[in-house]
């Protein structure tokens, strides 16, 4: 990251293009840089700090297409003050954006390999930029699989896009939910049960995993049984953040700052920490 002349704690102003309802508590917000700013570049896996005047600032992963420089997209679960206000914003309203911050998924380094993307719940949002990238450069990758688990059929994100990608036949997509009623024709069971259904070559596969920590831990166990090494798996971690740039101290995770050393970590680097309570 280049040293900037302006203070890294001061946001740039973006305007809302539109707010799209994804599920009952989750929405996608599209933002346009205000006049004078030319586009916005980020790497899949990075996050920004979104600021709403009068409410505060929250770290949110970027969920949009990295090739779309004119529009910055986030998918957000509305659970707190700031996120609830974000959901109510109207087209044209201005908010503050700092970033992008943090580490990225190893998208380029995974070229020539089998790529397995495992998402749990809202964890699909930070992985969607990976999907856009690998599908745009489909020939550079071997098998691509997406395993996505969420709570109920009503909680499935990006329904239309999942259908579209599935119809392309160049990606193996499996979706499962933890709970469903009788009318559900899809899979029921935690996301780890999907791993036995996909084909990959464990000597050259890479797994990119994002979801609740416990889901990631069990997913990793399953992949280890299938022959993946710790160095072939990546996870995205989450902690309280106030600054995004290593000043506020809140996101410390053992020796790491999740905001600048993460959020994406190669699993072998955090294996010991993921087993420690209250770290």
């Amino acid at each position: 990251m280049a040293r900037s002349k302006t203070d890294p704690m001061t946001p740039a102003i973006f305007h809302v293009k539109r707010v799209i309802r994804e599920t009952e508590d989750t929405f996608t917000i599209e933002l346009i840089p205000s006049n004078g700013t030319t586009g916005f570049s980020f790497k899949p896996g990075q996050f920004t700090m979104l600021y709403v005047l009068g409410a505060g600032e929250v770290p949110i992963s970027i969920s949009g297409d990295p090739f779309e420089k004119r529009c910055l997209t986030h998918t957000i679960r509305s659970v707190g003050n700031v996120t609830r206000l974000l959901q109510k914003l109207k087209a044209g309203e201005g908010i503050g954006v700092r970033g992008p911050f943090g580490s990225a998924w190893p998208v380029k380094a995974s070229q020539g390999r089998d790529v397995i993307i495992v998402a749990g719940g809202i964890g699909l949002a930070p992985l969607r930029p990976v999907l856009y990238t690998v599908l745009k450069n489909r020939k550079k990758y071997n098998r691509i699989s997406l395993l996505y688990g969420t709570r109920t059929p009503e909680d499935i994100l990006y329904h239309q896009e999942l259908m579209k990608w599935r119809s392309q036949f160049d990606i193996d997509i499996h979706v499962t939910v933890d709970q469903a009623g009788k009318s559900w024709k899809g899979n029921v069971g935690v996301v780890t049960t999907l791993i036995s259904r996909i084909a990959f070559d464990s000597t050259q596969a890479v797994a990119l995993i994002c979801g609740p920590e416990v889901m990631m831990r069990f997913t990793i166990q399953e992949f280890r049984q299938r022959g993946l090494n710790n160095e072939d798996m990546y996870v995205s971690m989450e902690r309280n953040m106030k600054c995004g740039i290593g000043f506020c101290g809140h996101c410390q995770y053992g020796p790491y700052f999740i905001c600048k050393d993460g959020p994406v970590f190669r699993y072998d680097l955090v294996e010991d920490l993921m087993k420690v309570e209250e770290i």
Binding site: D25, T150, T192, P212
Partner: peptide
């Protein structure tokens, strides 16, 4: 054993709103 593991993970409701959060809401 597999069924038990899956059931335990489902029981955690890992994608659900946390209790604390629900209380706040």
């Amino acid at each position: 054993a597999r069924r038990l593991e899956v059931a335990r993970l489902q029981f955690l409701d890992v994608y659900g709103v946390q209790q604390g959060q629900a209380a706040v809401q």
